[in-house]
Simulated scan of single mutants.
Amino acid sequence: MPLADPLPAPASGRFIAAVHHFPLRIYFEDTDLSGLVYHANYLRYMERARSDMLRVAGIDQRANHEGGEGVYAVTDLKLAYRRPARLDDDLMVVSQVMEVRAASCAIQQRVMRGEDILTDGVITVAYLTPRGRPQRQPRPWIEIFSRLMRGEDIHP
C-alpha cells in the first residue's frame, strides 16, 4: 500500500546569498554530564555542514575519491567557543568560503542558535593526491568556490 506522504529525507542545507545554511538538532548523545554539547561535537557539526555545502554546490567528493583523483583534508583550524548548546536546541551551521587557492580553500563556519553565535571557526582544507601530497583542485571546483567567495549564487 503506497504511503500518502513521502518519507522524510535526511537533513540538507541550502545556499542563501552564496552562504550555506545547514540545520541540525541537539540530541542527548551530543551532550556531556553537564547537559551541554561536548566541545568536539561542534567540529562534527561543521564537518557535516562542509560536506553538505560541497554536495549542494555540485562538488562530488565521493566520485573524485573513488576515481583515485584526490581528497580534501583539514590543514588548519581556528575555533572560538562562545556559548553552549543544550539538549533539543535547533541550530544552524552557516558556512561561507573566505579564500580560494590552487590547492586549498578556507571556509568560515558558525554554529548558531537563532542570532547567537555559539562557535565560530575558520577551517582550511587542502586538496591532496591519494598519496597525501598537495595538488591543484579540479578547475571546476575552484570556479565554484570563487563564485561563492564573490557572493554569487550557484545553481548546479
Rank of each mutant, 00 (worst) to 15 (best):
L3D: 11
A4R: 11
D5R: 12
P6E: 11
L7N: 05
P10N: 04
S12C: 11
F15E: 06
F15Q: 07
F15N: 07
I16D: 15
A17I: 02
H21F: 12
H21K: 02
P23V: 02
Y27H: 15
D30L: 01
T31E: 01
D32K: 06
D32M: 05
L33V: 13
S34G: 14
S34C: 00
Y38G: 02
Y38E: 03
H39G: 08
H39E: 08
A40F: 07
N41K: 09
L43E: 04
R44P: 04
M46T: 08
R48P: 05
R48E: 04
R50T: 08
R50W: 10
D52V: 06
D52T: 09
L54M: 15
R55K: 09
R55W: 13
V56I: 14
G58C: 09
D60P: 04
D60S: 10
Q61W: 01
A63G: 12
H65T: 12
H65G: 00
E66G: 00
E69Q: 15
G70Y: 06
G70F: 04
V71R: 09
Y72A: 08
T75V: 15
L77N: 02
Y81S: 00
R82Q: 12
R82V: 01
A85Y: 02
R86C: 01
L87W: 03
D89T: 00
D89K: 00
D89F: 02
D90H: 10
L91N: 06
L91H: 03
V93F: 01
V93E: 04
V94F: 02
V94I: 13
S95R: 03
M98K: 15
V100K: 07
R101S: 13
A102T: 14
C105T: 13
Q109L: 07
V111A: 08
E115C: 00
D116A: 14
D116R: 13
T119L: 13
D120N: 10
G121W: 05
V122H: 02
V122W: 04
T124E: 13
V125D: 05
V125G: 09
A126F: 05
L128M: 13
L128Y: 10
L128P: 07
L128C: 12
T129G: 10
T129N: 08
G132D: 10
R133A: 14
Q135P: 08
R136M: 09
R136I: 02
R136K: 14
P138A: 06
I144M: 11
S146I: 00
L148Y: 04
R150W: 05
D153T: 12
I154K: 04
H155V: 11
P156A: 11
P156K: 10
